[in-house]
């Protein structure tokens, strides 16, 4: 019973791997998940800025973006796949 978190770009170095599982009970919302992931000052600083998400940070749940209003309150459930990456561009 877990939420799967996938890391991209430099988040793989920050979190020491490509993905991890977080028990669903500890990740009821995106905010709770980020609290759990941000277990060192450095990791926390890569995810959060004050009470909100860090600018240029992109989080998608099962391929869909977070809602613009109160994104940290977005509910998560068992089996969800959360992707965390910095904004990238290309062409």
């Amino acid at each position: 019973m877990a939420v799967t978190v996938k890391f991209f770009a430099y988040f793989r170095e920050v979190f020491g791997g490509r993905e991890c599982g977080v028990p669903a009970a500890e990740a009821a919302t995106v905010g709770a998940l980020l609290d759990r992931l941000g277990d060192t000052p450095q990791r926390r600083a890569e995810l959060l800025a004050g009470a909100g998400l860090k600018p240029h940070l992109v989080i998608m749940i099962n391929g869909a973006p977070l809602p613009p209003d109160r994104p940290l309150e977005t509910a998560l459930k068992d089996g969800d796949v959360v992707a965390i990456f910095p904004l990238l561009g290309g062409g």
């Binding site: 991209f8 770009a9 430099y10 240029h56 998608m60 391929g63 990456f85 990238l88 561009g89 290309g90």
Partner: peptide, 25 residues
Amino acid sequence: QAPVTKRLMRELGTAGLVELINVIN
């Protein structure tokens, strides 16, 4: 300041998008 211009393009190039664009189908 912006991560994409500060470091990501230099680290990953535009192909840094490959896995990301797959995540968004």
